[in-house]
Amino acid sequence: MGFEFVALSLPPMVIGTLAAIACALPGNFLLLRRQSLIGDAISHVVLPGIVVAFLLTGVISTLPMMLGAAGAALVAVLAIEAIRRFGRVEPGAAMGVVFTAMFAGGVLLLEQSDTSSVHLDVEHALYGNLESLIWLDAVGWASLVDPSALSLLPPELFRMAGVTVLVAAVVALFWRPFVLATFDEGFARSLGLPTGLIGLAIATLAALAAVAAFDAVGSIIVIAMFICPPAAARMMTDRLGAQVAWSLGFATLSAVLGYVMAGYGPLWLGRTDAVSAAGMIATVSGAVLLLATLLGPHRKHP
């Protein structure tokens, strides 16, 4: 049990949890600002970004793909804003136009170019490949204190950890302005806070988390974690600090429980093959939200 768990299950579980936390954290602000679907939009437009990056560089490597994804997210944000403002289109519809068109463009590019030699396809983009992020150099729990084995952990783990720490640090550092600008934009502006800039900062933070998490775990987890844990947390409390804490708890619970259920659940039920961990994590987060909407102490309209 020890070896198998540490080598095959621990790294993806930790990466999944980090991705869930990195997305749920800005998700709290997006929820209150009624921008929850930004996560949905970003995770769709990431596809053309990485395809273009691949076509330009010809290799599958992380840095150009992350840059491509970030560039695509930027293009999408600008396009949505331009269509909304110049075309006087309502924001939801403007978003729908841009992300579907960019996703379609990405799929078409992917089908037209020769990517058969490399691991790049739509399915991978949608539900990632959490199960493949294994740590073959581990020999058991002792490897956790063995520096040479630790250095061979999947690189996604370090990247995801770095982004999670960065997101958490920014949220902690700018907590007060973020909260003020989210709850009462007028009041925040009267205090001299740059509310437009703060809104942009929150969206950027979300995009950063989404792009990093997308690379590691695929878009389903990204969309689910932006919304479900914060929404469930909103049913539990009226205070934002407590809401963030609840949401992080729910995100961790969903990632761990989802991964365990996907990896071991079918075995317990007598089947031989594991099911999609990304899909199961999203499903568990939805189940948590369902329970919270039925039982949460603060579920009703105030």
């Binding site: 929820l31 009624r34 921008q35 929850s36 679907l37 996560g39 949905d40 939801g92 949608l126 539900y127 389903i220 987890i221 969309i223 689910a224 932006f226 919304i227 479900c228 929404a231 909103r234 049913m235 996907a262 079918p266 089947r271 093959d273 594991a274 099911v275 999609s276 990304a278 899909g279 199961m280 994590i281 999203a282 499903t283 987060s285 939805g286 189940a287 939200l289 909407t293 603060h298 579920r299 009703k300 309209h301 105030p302």
Partner: peptide, 28 residues
């Protein structure tokens, strides 16, 4: 209607959860 979640959050929650569950079923 019944909770204080805004519509966009409800849409996103249902979208991601159902899609995730669908992917699980698809792998089965």
């Amino acid at each position: 209607a019944r909770t204080r979640l805004p519509q966009d959050a409800a849409i996103g929650a249902i979208l991601s959860t159902f899609f995730g569950a669908g992917i699980v079923l698809l792998t089965i």
